[in-house]
Design a protein around this nucleic acid. Sequence first.
RNA 1: UGGGGCGUCGUCAAGUGGUAAAGACACAGGACUUUGACUCCUGCAUCGGAGGUUCGAAUCCUCCCGCCCCAGCCA
Length: 563
Amino acid sequence: MTNQTKASDFIRDIIAQDRKANKNEGRVITRFPPEPNGYLHIGHAKSICLNFEVAKENNGRCHLRFDDTNPTKEEEEYVQSIKEDVRWLGYDWGEHLFFASDYFDKLYEYGVHLIKTGKAYVCDLTADEIREYRGTLTEPGKESPYRKRSMAENLDLYERMRTGEFPDGTRVLRAKIDMASGNLNMRDPVIYRILHASHHRTGDSWCIYPMYDYTHPISDAVENISHSLCTLEFEDHRPLYDWTLDNLPVACHPQQIEFARLNLSFTVVSKRKLLRLVNEGFVDGWDDPRMPTLSGIRRRGYTPEAIRNFCERIGVAKRDSTVDVALLEHTVREDLNNRAPRSMAVLRPLKVVIENYPEGRVEELDAQNHPGNPDMGTRKVPFSRELYVERDDFMEEPPKKFYRLTPGREVRFRYAYFIKCERVVKDDKTGEIIELRCTYDSESRGGSAPDGRKVKATIHWVSAAHAIPAEIRLYDRLFVTENPEADKEKDFIENINSKSLEILTECRLEPSLANAAPGSLYQFERQGYFCADSKDSAAEKLVFNRTVTLRDSWAKIKGRGKS
RNA sequence: UGGGGCGUCGUCAAGUGGUAAAGACACAGGACUUUGACUCCUGCAUCGGAGGUUCGAAUCCUCCCGCCCCAGCCA
């Protein structure tokens, strides 16, 4: 809470030095440049947080710019979801919303400029030929036969490309750089291609579209970006980024700096793979709570604060790395522990009858909404003769260290009484335990006995007559392997966790949960953090998603016994 | 075999020649506990390897090894 020192990183260090040297008059402007061709995921969150936070720390600003130069892949729907997700994460681009397509006229004119200065030419080679001429990683390329075209001819052809005279793929505009460069990106890269496709913003006004490598530096320069942060795979593109700006009459030359993208254990984030999960029905959609998309994570119950905190803790560096999902889970628990009100929910009910408790009697007991924060107040919870407890909280033949209910043992029912299990009722035929007959100590109301005796366990419960039914969806990691993509021979689909979703329909909740608003967050004591599903939960039929379990040291002890 | 990067605890990640190599997560112990939660204590790396420079190196030099990215008219 106090003056927390923000961890620095190499990018912040560079920016600090730049400001010290008064580069760009000390101004810091960054940008988050998504392509509107899919949903944002946790990997994008790293970039969003980096760009917006760095700007904020330096009294600068961060632009939201859609890199929409490929109309065949981009859609308005994605623009909307991206804006929503960035806002949800807690960032505001203010007036600075841009689209690369805003710059199409300028981009085209700059193409003319390059031709006039002998830095670009129209090439008639086919895509296959261009690939052949490009050479290989170890051999230099060959110059295109069209490389020496006259300026006049280039200008004419470029203009005619734009007016729609030529079919797709017949010609491109290329930068004239160096076919022998060790960097393939510098071997006369294509900067404009013909695409008779309708664009989500410019409609049919264009049939030629600029390439990323050409568009990005110019867009950055036009917006006066000071530091253009991108991921490692663009490191090879930096010479082209710089070449473009060095050969055009732009007023500013932003600095591209590359950092490592986020990889998360037990998770997959490539758009192509996420698309397969959706299309092949392994999940229910882009916002399925198991998806690493921001919309999925949000629906799961993660908070923006938790995500931001996570992004801050993972740091920013150049080394390829894979962050343990446990850290993400930790940051949600940390945040939810502070803010989520507590309540009691029985997921797998086991009937309990308190034999010495008067029939028909109901007591309203006081329960704290948050043991660590009295400001969150208290609530009443009804207690009666017939209750439900968690099946897992009873064992007829308990192993060592099992402290919960067991025949003859007394435990505390949270905020209620000391309860002792007297008898187990089983189904005659199946032998299944169907009910527990118990007694209570009327002196222990509230949960402590006047004689000072102790119990080892406190368990949660609900009153059978008052409990409200609900569906609870237990989500777990989507993959069972730490790196689902590790084995190149194997389809990552084979690593899917078949138990990533368990739907419980017989759950019973304490009555105070009756009007849980969609999206609201709770801790169901001893179980985990849950949120009312934003799509499916309604007053008539409550549906909760498990965001994350509580840390469970009992599970560890139990696990040891097994292996 | 070309070009560009990267190698510090199980996982992230500080460290930029000078006291016992931060911190977090994970893990392991323990305390506390009306959530086996939370909280709190404790423990947990000699820095990819080999040489060299230096009074002194994770930090400088040399060589070696390993990993990642690049041959879209995708971004």
